[in-house]
């Protein structure tokens, strides 16, 4: 034992890290799916979308929710990110290993790492843009889509992938259920949310010219 390790030892630290990773992950998945349902209200028309945005604003839900989600987002990056291989040799081992094993879940995780890093960057840009163009309205959203639809398309796909497989993996790690049905259910939900998101994207694009 080394003095610096004895002095800083906390036997429960890794439990707390794992728990924070779980809780922040589940919260973010819940947020993302709700977020996409809210965005999809554009399918019901501009007015529905605007009045929902107005209601969230009126009841201060946006002002509480957004800082909270940013905090959770940061905590998730810190706790889930601790598993990222940062050394060159570790990355080489994992890459070789994934190619050798051809295990579906191993590949899914490799992309989970890549999508996670990408969401860190793209999600931050998205939050900044939306907050600096406050409040949210159908017209400003549609305007953003005109120039940056490709940005939102990429973010949508990465986000849904990361969320869908993230929640699957948490259930695999903690759950009472076998993996096969879990994988099926998370894929179905992801497909539904992705379809809604794509439909909303399309409606915003159509709306943009007006």
């Amino acid at each position: 034992m080394l003095a610096q390790k004895i002095l800083t030892r906390n036997p429960k630290a890794e439990l707390y890290y794992d728990l924070v990773e779980l809780l922040t992950g589940v919260t973010l998945v819940g947020f993302l799916w709700t977020h996409m349902l809210f965005v999809a209200t554009i399918l019901l028309g501009k007015n529905t979308f605007n009045s929902l945005s107005q209601a969230l604003d009126d009841y201060y839900l946006s002002y509480v929710g957004i800082p909270f989600i940013i905090l959770v987002f940061m905590m998730h990056i810190l706790t889930a990110g601790r598993r990222l291989p940062t050394r060159y040799q570790e990355q080489q081992i994992i890459w070789r290993h994934a190619k050798m094993l051809e295990g579906a879940d191993t590949w899914v995780w490799v992309f989970q790492v890549i999508t996670g890093a990408a969401i860190f960057a793209l999600g931050s840009i998205h939050m900044w843009v939306v907050i600096s163009g406050w409040p949210i309205s159908a017209m400003t959203s549609a305007e953003r889509m005109q120039a940056f639809w490709w940005f939102y398309l990429v973010l949508l796909i990465l986000g849904e992938y990361h969320a869908g497989f993230g929640i699957y993996r948490q259930f695999v790690k903690w759950g009472w259920f076998p993996r096969k049905p879990l994988g099926y259910i998370s894929k179905v939900i992801t497909a539904i949310i992705l379809t809604l998101g794509l439909a909303a994207l399309w409606v915003f694009l159509k709306l943009g010219g007006a």
Partner: peptide, 10 residues
């Protein structure tokens, strides 16, 4: 808590 749930073991 080291397990990342990749299930290559399983």
């Amino acid at each position: 808590f080291g397990c990342m749930g990749l299930m290559a073991c399983d």
